[in-house]
């Protein structure tokens, strides 16, 4: 999960599950996978990506103001994927600013999340 693992043609994604859906994030953003910290609210609280069914794990990442965490239901692991398999979201599907694109896992689009932007967006709301 370091920037040095990035190459021009491949990138590392951390693939996780939340609320029955699969998401991907830039692995270089994630500092560690941990248990949710105490006082982080109920596991089933609606989050920006939906409602976690278990919320038994948390992705911890650095933000502009410190550290952020995202409760997830499970972590599938780090996948090294070809840049060719990444797509920006189409114009007509402008979503939240933290939904930055998709990774084509075969014919299944996996939504890519910018974790830092997600926290920034939540702070603006």
């Amino acid at each position: 999960m370091t920037a040095s693992s990035y190459t021009r043609s491949e990138i590392e994604l951390l693939v996780f599950e939340l609320g029955g859906a699969v998401f991907g994030a830039d692995a270089s953003q994630v500092l560690r996978i941990d248990r949710p910290v105490e006082g982080a609210g109920p596991a089933q609280a609606p989050g920006p990506l939906g409602v976690a069914t278990q919320g038994s794990r948390a992705l911890v990442f650095k933000t502009e103001g410190g550290y952020g965490q995202l409760r997830v239901d499970g972590v599938r692991g780090v996948r090294q994927v070809a840049v060719d398999s990444l797509r920006r979201l189409p114009q007509a599907a402008t979503a939240q600013p933290y939904a930055i694109g998709v990774w084509l896992d075969g014919d299944r689009p996996v939504l890519l999340i910018d974790l830092v932007e997600m926290v920034r967006h939540q702070g603006r709301q």
């Binding site: 189409p90 979503a95 939904a99």
Partner: peptide
């Protein structure tokens, strides 16, 4: 219709995105 990936916090008429011949479409 192939696998559709939902997008967070979008209107209900947008079911998600779908990959077709390597192109991602809402």
């Amino acid at each position: 219709l192939g696998p559709v990936t939902p997008l967070p916090r979008t209107p209900s008429f947008l079911l998600g995105v779908f990959a077709h011949r390597g192109e991602v479409l809402p």
